[in-house]
Amino acid sequence: MGSSVSSKPSLPDSSARFRHHLPPNDLRRPLVNEISQQLVNGLALGAVYALIAIGYTMVYGVLRFINFAHGDVFMLGSFAGYYLAPRVAQWFPLPGWAGWTLVMVLSMVICAAIGILIELLAYRPLRDRPKLTVLITAIGVSLLIEYTCQHKAVFGASQKAFPDLLPAGVFKLGGLSFNTTQFVVLGVTVVLLAALTFIVKKTRIGMAMRAVSHNASAASLMGISNTFIISFTFGLGSALAGAGGILYGMTYTGIDPLMGVNVGLKAFVAAVLGGIGNLPGAALGGMVLGVVETFAGGMSGVSTYRDGIAFAILIIILIFKPTGLLGSKQIEKV
């Protein structure tokens, strides 16, 4: 895997070791190519943000609170892939793509189970409590996962190298060139978003989710089990975060137990940017944020402020358009 590291775009992380790094021949390419390449990098980062942002938005839709621990579920997805990949290769000697698919699906299942478990243990006892109580609990859950995972008996605090799951390669599409990872990241995101849209729009359970999100008490009067729908929503959102974790690991190779903090917060910003509670909005917000961050990271003079950009966007959007790009206004009733 060592050879492919240099072509991977920079981490959305403040550590100087992973500053923006392109292969030397990229430096000689014309500006247009440079811009379009940055666009591809930005979209690949944005895809990961989008997958996580959807989890925030869905949970906000049904429970009206920010699941702070969602970023850590994303981290657990990465680590699930890290530990599963060698075992899957050992136990099921499948060709590259099939093995990769199996790792991906298993990690998503594990994350879904963790998400459902978090809701069951920490949030369900607080269903009728003030929102702030639940928020504080969510921060507690987040820290519990982070610090338990950092313990040397679990994952350890040091950074780990995500295994190379797929053969390296370059795809050309129009004037853009994608490496395998970027191609897979964007492809998987599109497939998952399509599947999610299908579930939410076309299935009975999706209809129930929309009903609970619209008016939980009316939905329960219609015979919908709120408890089941909330569990299902956590499972679905966490599975997407798990997929995001695998894709992130494939893109940036370095994973550690605190990676969910920054990425999770930025994905939350993406959800707010798109309009919280709005699924296409979360996807759009993720893409926009990924592209903006990547371009800012490539500009000299701005790049060191990269980690602050997402929060600046958040504050600006909350002041000028708190409903987000695609959100609709909600009237607060007394």
């Binding site: 609170f65 920010i66 929102k131 702030l132 917060l265 939350f268 602050g308 929060f311 909350l318 708190p322």
Partner: peptide
Amino acid sequence: LRLRGDYLAIVTLGFGEIIRVI
């Protein structure tokens, strides 16, 4: 002023991060 509860929590958190980055 325009924010409540969890939004305010996130904005203040973001503000703390921005100060640190600065």
